[in-house]
């Protein structure tokens, strides 16, 4: 397994795009988070009932798309160039290959995700007090020493890792990069748009409970926890179930099919 990990790490590390994409994860997350933090304002206590923790992590909505590209290309890139045949000739245990890929991709995603989340929280901590979210108005500065903020921040890093696993599983199942990225982004963004027009509030709530993004990102909620469609950790569990199902499907197909 350690050789497999080493091989996958070498392949990922030496691709010219990987570094740029990981930088893209951090940049997309931090820039959108900072822009959204800078666009809100709170003049009086009554006017601003905003979940500032969630707000300062808004960039995750875009950063996850770049994470999906990293994970999809780690698999589909090999199919595009035919490298997959060399890989499977060198490491005939296909489950091991998939496990090694999943480990390496998740590890780099968690690293980039940590940088992205720390950058976003720092941006929120620096920007939000200038827009009226001050301790005087009932909004203490964002700090990872606060348990809820820490849960949201650490949970967001885990969320990005699970998005990488989900994308990896989908890419292994469908092999083609274009189809895989379309499926992953459709799965992520269509649920909330469907929720918007769902006829009854009950249907909308169910859609929010089963959507990988809508459920998973409840980990960022720090206020109104009682009225959430699904609890923070349970929501992350829903995303984990999606990722596990995708990896399982990908793994089974990888074992069965010719490369």
């Amino acid at each position: 397994m350690s050789e497999a990990l080493h091989a996958e790490w070498t392949k990922l590390r030496t691709l010219p795009g990987t570094g740029w994409l990981l930088l893209g994860v951090v940049a997309a997350t931090v820039i959108i988070s900072a822009a959204v933090s800078a666009s809100v304002s709170c003049s009086s206590t009554a006017a601003c009932h905003v979940d500032v923790t969630k707000l300062s992590l808004t960039g995750t909505y875009l950063g996850q798309a770049v994470v999906a590209i990293v994970a999809v290309l780690a698999v589909s890139g090999e199919y595009a160039t035919g490298m997959i045949r060399t890989t499977l000739a060198a490491m005939p245990r296909r489950t091991t290959v998939l496990a090694a890929k999943a480990t390496v991709v998740t590890a780099v995603t968690l690293a980039a995700g940590t940088a992205a989340v720390l950058g976003s929280v720092l941006a929120g901590r620096l920007i939000l007090p200038g827009h009226g979210y001050t301790p005087a108005n009932g909004y203490p500065a964002l700090s990872l020493a606060n348990g809820t903020v820490l849960r949201a921040a650490a949970g967001t890093v885990l969320y990005l890792g699970l998005i990488a696993l989900l994308s990896l599983g989908v890419a292994t199942a469908v092999r083609d990069a274009a189809v895989a990225i379309g499926l992953v982004l459709g799965l992520l963004y269509l649920f909330p748009i469907l929720t918007q027009v769902a006829g009854s509030p009950g249907v909308a709530r169910h859609l929010q409970q089963i959507g990988p993004m809508t459920a998973g990102l409840e980990i960022q909620a720090s206020t109104g926890l009682r009225s959430l469609p699904i609890g923070p950790w349970a929501g992350l569990g829903v995303l984990a179930a999606w990722a596990a199902a995708a990896l399982l499907a990908g793994g089974l197909l990888l074992r069965r099919r010719d490369a």
């Binding site: 909505y61 875009l62 770049v66 590209i69 999809v72 589909s76 083609d176 379309g182 963004y189 918007q196």
Partner: peptide, 25 residues
């Protein structure tokens, strides 16, 4: 493909998502 698709989806569907269902802006 992956970069092109993500870019166009980000400029259309994700922008709509940010402006309407998410409504954080």
């Amino acid at each position: 493909a992956a970069g092109a698709i993500t870019a166009v989806i980000a400029l259309t569907v994700v922008v709509y998502f940010f402006s309407v269902p998410l409504a954080v802006l």
